[in-house]
Design a protein around this nucleic acid. Structure first.
Lengths: 249, 249
DNA sequence: CGCGGTTTTGAGAATCCTCAAAACCAGTGG
DNA sequence: CCACTGGTTTTGAGGATTCTCAAAACCGCG
């Protein structure tokens, strides 16, 4: 058993995630509506596939807890990780809007998801245009992240790429409030890193080792921990955008 | 003079682009509204910058004619082309939704653009939720293309990548109705290709030469012409999705 | 203790890069 | 009509990066 639907835990208004500073305030009416839109919660085991390429998903999800990643495969099995998902992110939008999903999503850790019905999406746009706008905003944000990733894979050196990726994930996690109590681990293996960076496992390992030896990161608790965020961003030639408040569906 | 605003040419209902098979039907009311939303047209010279990274654009554009590309730069000038734009594509959405643009857009050929006011976007969502939905759909489509591009740059070999890129652009162009009268040229230089593929100019040239020697493409009229589309897609391990009808703003 | 998954190391080979220069080509001005 | 110019494509060559193959080391867990 890799996934299980659980009954509603709490109303959206009381969602602990929503209280975090990065998310914008919703009106009471919006919260009520979202509560209707939400049909349940879903827990997913680490390693389980949340959404699979080719399917036409009947659901949309908001991540409440845990990490996952989006990826695509070539016919012969080569894998490219496109982006990571973490609390507050919306997944499955493509599968809801288009005929079918063009990528898959897998859980990196146990995940807790909020489930929405695809069929209610039209209704949402009609009754709460502001929320529709929010969904577009979230899609534009995803595009922004992909742009930066593509720049990285296409034009940064292996070392810059690794530094960028780690800094990027760390920054997102901190922004959304993961590991506010000190150092936390990004729950990936070096194989995941390799498939994100567009490098082989062996070369990824050698590259990451340089970052470890330079004491910019360490590898512990089944993942990657950041020790010197600034040095990573500098190495990558990247500066994080200042984060505006964002919607949470 | 690289860009000039022109007075309104014709109502959206009579837009010649809209008549093409790939675009979905709009209701008379929608067309009326879009006509209001549209504030003018803009011509842009080949090589001119349409939108620049860092700016907070007051405008949104729909491409009516011509080709362009979106790109990002690293601090030292390395360039990654993220995607191409052609008739029917919406550009500048990011700059309208977020604080500022995270990429630039440049014209590959003379372009004709439809201009919309960013400030009216909220109004559009409120009054025509279906159009809001359309905009989200377009954003999701852009994401889909980026996903495939990232897969390509990250995991395909140089030859596969080149084959994919050319097949991809050719397919998009055909779908939107460019060059329906026989063979047409994709208006790029090999430098553009290189910056899209994440390769050096020299290696790109050698790779493209293989495709030319195999008679899959030819290089003529200042661009790339496709001679054997199927062979390209097969070489890339890619099959184009079937194209649903899409909105045109 | 044994097992499977993950990280590490070594080594030779393929890919891709940089540097440098030549060839080609379309447009400009004499 | 031709020389000149700037942009683009092509070629060669040596070198750096990255890959594959293979095996060892490590590590948490049953």
């Amino acid at each position: 058993m890799t996934a299980a639907v659980v009954s509603r835990q709490y109303a959206c208004a009381k969602c602990p995630l929503r209280a975090r500073a990065i998310f914008r305030e919703f009106t009471a009416a919006e919260l009520d509506y979202i509560s209707t839109f939400k049909t349940g919660e879903l827990t997913v085991d680490k390693g389980a596939t949340v959404l699979v390429e080719g399917a036409h998903s009947a659901h949309l999800f908001t991540v409440l807890q845990g990490w996952g990643f989006r990826y695509k495969l070539l016919p012969d099995g080569r894998r490219q990780i496109l982006n990571y998902v973490m609390p507050g992110d919306l997944i499955g939008l493509q599968g809801s809007l288009m005929e079918e999903m063009r990528h898959s999503v897998e859980a990196l850790s146990p995940m807790l998801l909020c489930v929405f019905e695809r069929d209610q999406l039209q209704d949402l746009y009609r009754n709460y245009p502001g929320l529709g706008y929010d969904i577009t905003w979230l899609a534009a944000r995803e595009e922004q992240m992909l742009d930066e990733n593509l720049l990285s894979v296409g034009r940064r050196t292996a070392l810059e790429r690794a530094a960028y990726l780690i800094a990027f994930l760390h920054h997102r996690a901190v922004t959304v409030g993961i590991g506010t109590r000190g150092i936390f681990a990004i729950p990936v293996t070096q194989q995941h890193m390799a498939d994100t960076l567009g490098l082989s496992l062996v070369h990824t390992n050698k590259t990451i080792r340089k970052l470890i030896n330079a004491k910019l990161i360490r590898w512990r608790d089944g993942g990657c921990q950041v020790l010197a965020f600034e040095k990573l961003t500098e190495m990558a030639g990247w500066s994080p955008d200042l984060e505006e408040k964002r919607p949470l569906l």
